[in-house]
Amino acid sequence: MEDVKISYTESLISWKRPDLRVGVPVTVKYPLVPTEKPPEYRGKPHIDPNVCIGCGACVRACPADALTAEWDLENGLKSIVSNPARCIRCGRCEEACPTGAMKLTLEFELATPNKEDLVEVVEHHLTKCKKCGDYTEFTERQVEKAFQILPKEIVDANALGEKMQLCRECRMEESVKILAAQGRIIGDPLLLPPQHAKGGEK
């Protein structure tokens, strides 16, 4: 065989030949043996339905639209839908979640004949408006949580205890009435609030 002389590799070539010792195999029969999952691993996200308040912070944070909120204003339901088939495992939802309901699990073996099998849905009941009886855009747990975390002074000062029981329309009407009473809005207060579209909001 021809001797190859290469200036900058001469020193390297003079190194010893690779040893041909039969090595210990590193391949494993993967699905048959369990793999190690480090605690940092980011797997399929899971929503704890007992802790979720349905605020939708995760939905806003999700860059891949794997999390969506579905509204059913007729029946007073708001669902947080998690679709791991779209998920990119970035973990933004986990960071955004105010209650720690959203967690990335260590699970990653998600092969399934039907992607729908992976979908998780957490349904929440919406509160009813005290005034008109329509459903508001807040879930019951959201309101509960809000009262839990807000200091009492703030709740009292803004009359939130009253306002949070109302739907957006009625709330606006109330505000307009108050403002009109204070003389800050001129004109017929009942004409002012825009009609908000019901249902189908997504």
Partner: peptide, 9 residues
């Protein structure tokens, strides 16, 4: 060959 390459083969 597999054993030389550290595989089970």
């Amino acid at each position: 060959k597999a054993r030389i390459q550290y595989r089970v083969g």
